[in-house]
Design a protein around this nucleic acid. Structure first.
Length: 481
RNA sequence: GGCGCAUUCGUCUAGGGGCCUAGGACGCCGCCCUCUCACGGCGGUAGCACGGGUUCGAAUCCCGUAUGCGCUACCA
């Protein structure tokens, strides 16, 4: 039997890292086994759906390099399976369940339900409120219908016994039927609930393995019961732990970036994010950390998924991204950097000289988002950093250093990094200063900041015209005091 | 409250009875390299939640407690 998995997000917002990890594990598992991974959008609740969310989810998955199979449902074009287009299929299943007495109509008003819940709090039968209309007489049904009451369809959950789920990451989990309650399959308006659409589609689509978040573990027995009532076989499940913020709460906006789009905007590489997320809850040998997509596919297995929740460590992601960045060939680095600058709408994106900058910044950046602050002043004309400029002006040696530098650079035949280095070393000897002292004012004059790419390379990159302009400007600022 | 899941350095993890005086990585600290920032190199800090069992022997198995998280919707 070949493996078929699905990633089934609801379009209620951006794709966040928890969702990405779920998507990734599904995808890796499918690819590892040469199986199929499909994307299914669970848009059964029109009210909570957010405009553009589907496109955004797809864009994020594309960017990450997670391509899903079989996406033919949208009017002949390409797109994911949409539950909102499968209404008849759900209706047919409900009709069958109704006929066989496996489901029933429930006419409770929200007020009645609430009242029943309040009563149930005192008892040891927490599920009873959901079963109030489980055994209505035909007279009662006629009465409710005559009164024009809308009905929801509830599943007739067995009152006794238990359902066992053999989960690939959690082992055997047992649920008592009496505590489950009769959950709603179809709303008053005729729309299916998740509890109906999700398992039904898994069955209809021949899903063999359900890999999803632990938040859905408790609804697994209901889904299993439903599928088995319909004569189907429930898939094998693997419930992944939650991803937490540093406060151990579910990762969200307030912990920092939590959506794919944000990491992208901050200048992270998709390969790095994928690698990092793969390791959040899974490991290969406990030692190897940097793994390509191909290696992940080859090595991934659900058996090695950790059942414990994991805290999302931004620092480690940053480190890993730096590793990926530094391993890029210059041309690839330049291309990726340019794409990032374009995405960010930065004017630096149009610079034809980005590639020249790469060797100067590649060792220094943890993410492309830092590029502008580090090297922007070499590409753009901009005001110097205030604090740095202050430092320059307070430096008593600055005047003589700048004078000597200007003279030494003026004397140069060749304006390349080696020549510049020799010239600047000469300045140090001449003034009997250590490079770290002598170069500080020069760096501020050149880059407008105490932090910048290598001095010699920066000077060579800017070229004599700009360099002398900036040195003169600094000289004037120092003299003005 | 009920049900469920989880619990190894600050964080991600290795470990599935003796190989563990618990290994790797990020972070942190120190040293080296060094024109700033980084990178890189070397070294260091730090952990089996607690209590009972089982066993010749437990981080590893069982029970309990604690704590955290999830579910408890006509959300998914």
């Amino acid at each position: 039997m070949s493996v078929r998995v699905r990633f089934a997000p609801s379009p209620t917002g951006f794709l966040h890292v928890g969702g990405v990890r779920t998507a990734l594990y599904n995808w890796l598992f499918a690819r590892h086994h040469g199986g199929t991974a499909v994307l299914r959008i669970e848009d059964t609740d029109a009210e909570r759906e957010e405009a553009g969310a589907i496109e955004q989810i797809q864009r994020s998955l594309d960017w990450l390099g997670l391509s899903f199979d079989e996406s033919p449902s949208l009017g002949g074009g390409y797109g994911p399976y949409l539950q909102s287009r499968r209404g008849q299929h759900y209706q047919a299943a409900v009709d069958q369940l109704l006929t066989e007495g496996l489901a029933y109509r429930c006419f409770q008003t929200p007020e009645e339900l609430e009242a029943a819940r309040a009563d149930a709090r005192q008892t040891d039968d927490p599920a009873s409120p959901t079963r109030q209309h489980r055994d209505l007489t035909s007279d009662e049904i006629r009465h409710y219908e005559a009164a024009g009451r809308a009905a929801v369809i509830r599943f007739r959950t067995p009152l006794e016994g238990e359902t066992v789920v053999d989960d690939l990451v959690r082992g055997r989990v047992v649920f008592e039927h009496r505590l489950l309650g009769d959950h709603v399959l179809m709303r008053g308006g005729g729309a299916p609930t998740y509890q109906l659409a999700n398992p039904l589609d898994d069955m209809a689509m021949g899903i063999t393995h359900v890999i999803r978040g632990e938040d859905l573990l408790s609804s697994t027995p209901r889904q299993k019961l439903l599928i088995e009532a319909l004569g189907g076989t429930f898939p094998i499940t693997a419930h992944l732990s939650m991803i937490l913020g540093t406060d151990k709460k579910r990762l969200s906006k307030r912990h920092g970036a939590a959506s794919v789009e944000e990491f992208r905007a901050d200048g992270y590489l998709p390969e790095a994010l994928v690698n990092f997320l793969a390791l959040l809850g899974w490991s290969w040998d406990g030692e190897t950390e940097i793994m390509s997509m191909a290696e992940l596919v080859e090595r991934f297995s659900l058996e090695r998924v950790n059942p414990a929740p994991a805290v999302f460590d931004y620092q480690k992601l940053a480190w890993m991204n730096g590793q990926y960045l530094r391993n890029l060939a210059v041309g690839d680095y330049a291309a990726a950097l340019q794409r990032h600058l374009e995405d960010a709408g930065s004017p630096l994106a149009t610079s034809p000289r980005l590639e020249e900058l790469v060797p100067m910044v590649q060792e220094k950046l943890g993410a492309f988002g830092e590029f502008d602050a580090l090297a922007g002043s070499l590409v753009d004309e901009r005001a110097p950093d205030d604090a740095s400029w202050q430092k320059l002006q307070n430096d008593e040696q600055a005047g003589p250093i700048l004078d000597a530098t200007i003279a030494a650079l003026r004397a140069l035949q060749q304006f390349d990094a080696e020549s510049i280095e020799r010239a600047l070393r000469g300045v140090c000897e001449q003034l009997e200063l250590k490079p770290r002292q002598a170069f500080l004012p020069i760096r501020i004059a050149i880059a407008g900041s105490t932090v910048a790419p290598g001095l010699y390379e920066s000077i060579a990159f800017l070229g004599p015209d700009l360099v002398f302009t900036r040195l003169d400007r600094a000289r004037a600022a120092v003299r003005a005091l």
